[in-house]
Amino acid sequence: MSEEIDAEIRTTHVLDLAAEGKRLDGRGPDEYRKITIEPGFVTTADGSALVRIGDTAVVAGIKLEPGKPFADTPNAGVLTTNAELIPLSSPTFEPGPPQPGAIEVSRVVDRAIRAAETIDLTRLCVTPGEKSWVCYVDMHVIDHSGNLIDTSLLAALSALTHAIVPAKRFEIADADYPLDIQHYPIECTFVRLGDAIVVDPTFDEERSAQGRLTVATDEAGHVVAMQKGLIGAFSPDDVKDTVRRAFRHGDELRARARGGAP
């Protein structure tokens, strides 16, 4: 019960601040928290990255294994994306099968990677209809302080950018080679707090939010994916405005994901 009361007080405070154009951590409405990207964080993976946005941290690891292409796409490799919201990262996560929240993060990140055609899956085909690479993108949320979607995609993209196809180990080619990245999708998440719509919400802001909107853009000026979540509503003008803001942030974050250095 005390947890409920605490949440109620925080929500009121977050909304009161938002009405004055302020945020709990002093940021402006269109400002991300500090972002750090650490590529190659896990050496057992074929590609990996630890990404922090403020106090939120996600480790993404890529594993490539030989497998079989799907029957309806005999000339393409297979891409599998999964997010684990492990109980270590938040008192709100419980052990067990993935909850709707984890499934949503996985699917929204997966949608951006797929729709943007981030990797050319046809290049992951070894023998049409018989053998192809299966590319597993696993995201582990290790510290949940809000905005899991943006952090997870940034981690996945950074990991993919530095991934090496282990062709030698599996005796498919004489040498390993880098995974070919064609496009760089970036997701920007906004929440409504009263009349304000702020980017990169913290855990408290998400809990206070009257609607969440994620916009994924690519480097060529396309919106490639969107997802409205949580309880709340956005007008078409709100959506158009967040799309403009997402393009602006997208360019900045993209440069970071590609370079990896701060």
Partner: peptide, 24 residues
């Protein structure tokens, strides 16, 4: 009544003007 959207998802490729047209 409010003209607001409570469900919104998207997948594919749309430019900013196309997206605005699609919403309308």
């Amino acid at each position: 009544q409010s003209g607001r959207l409570v469900l919104l998802q998207m997948e594919g490729h749309l430019t900013e003007p196309e997206l605005a047209q699609a919403l309308d």
